[in-house]
Design a protein around this nucleic acid. Structure first.
Length: 254
DNA sequence: ATGGCCAATTTTATTGGA
């Protein structure tokens, strides 16, 4: 089973690239973030033409997440049922695997309202996930976590010291999430090298110089980790015409 | 000096992204 996650930075602007990527890579599941459109604006027809169900949780202008799946999704949930107005999480069960697609808050500036919202969102997520699955079940929690977990995941750790996405509280929240929910970072089980990123700044030739961050992750429970076959980042998708600033990240297991 | 961001909306600036 192949599961991927991709922050597309507007699904309508990126539709051609998305359809091309799906045709080439044929994932069983693709979680999308930053749709930047409403449910009505989502290109469900085009995706169904490629054989994908679309479980959409859209929002006007910003945010918005979706799960694309070849098999029909079951047990669909949107957000964490606690009154959050931002569309940042969608969950479903696909072919017996629990899938959670999420777009964590960015946090903007340290100690801002957005930063506090981000940390609180992580605490809520840590409480929510155990209501969806047990660590003994097959589960994939993936998306744009907006956290670079270790020094290996930023192109210049000294430069990013104390910056949003890389502060100690954010990294601690990410670690606590993994421990509390029985999850491991699947990509790091297969790719231990430095310089492996999933996002590059549009500015200052960030991609060309490989000045990036690894902030898009696939966290998996032990049954998935034990059957993990391969994992990686598709940098090719970041090279083409009018790319998202994020590349797709994927795993294969089972 | 060998570079310059992008998308949506509030649209000819502003906001958010990371």
């Amino acid at each position: 089973m192949k599961v991927a996650t991709w922050n597309v930075n507007s699904v309508r602007t990126r539709l051609e690239q998305l359809l091309g990527w799906l045709s080439t890579h044929q994932p069983d599941v693709l979680c999308l973030q930053e749709l930047k459109c409403t449910d009505e604006q989502f290109p469900a027809l085009e995706l169904s033409g490629l054989g994908y169900h679309a479980t959409v949780f859209g929002q006007r202008s910003y945010n918005g997440v979706a799960i694309l799946s070849k098999e029909k999704p079951e047990q669909v949930v949107r957000n964490m049922a606690d009154g959050d107005e931002q569309a940042r999480l969608v969950a479903a069960r696909v072919s017996g695997v629990h899938v959670v697609g999420l777009y964590a808050p960015n946090g903007q500036e340290v100690d801002s309202e957005a930063y506090r919202y981000k940390l609180e969102w992580y605490r809520r997520l840590t409480r929510f996930l155990p209501t969806r699955f047990a660590p003994t079940e097959r589960a994939v929690v993936c998306g744009d976590f907006n956290v670079a977990p270790t020094d290996l995941d930023v192109w210049d750790p000294r430069l990013f010291h104390g910056q949003t996405l890389f502060t100690a509280p954010e990294r601690a929240a990410f670690e606590e999430l993994k421990v509390a929910c029985g999850l491991v970072d699947a990509v790091r089980l297969k790719r231990a090298e430095a310089g492996l990123f999933s996002w590059w700044d549009y500015r200052m030739s960030g991609f060309k110089k490989n000045r990036g961050l690894r902030i898009d992750h696939l966290l998996v429970t032990a049954p998935v980790a034990q059957s993990l076959q391969d994992a990686g980042v598709d940098k090719q998708a970041r090279e083409g015409k009018q790319p998202s600033d994020h590349a797709p990240v994927w795993i294969e297991f089972g």
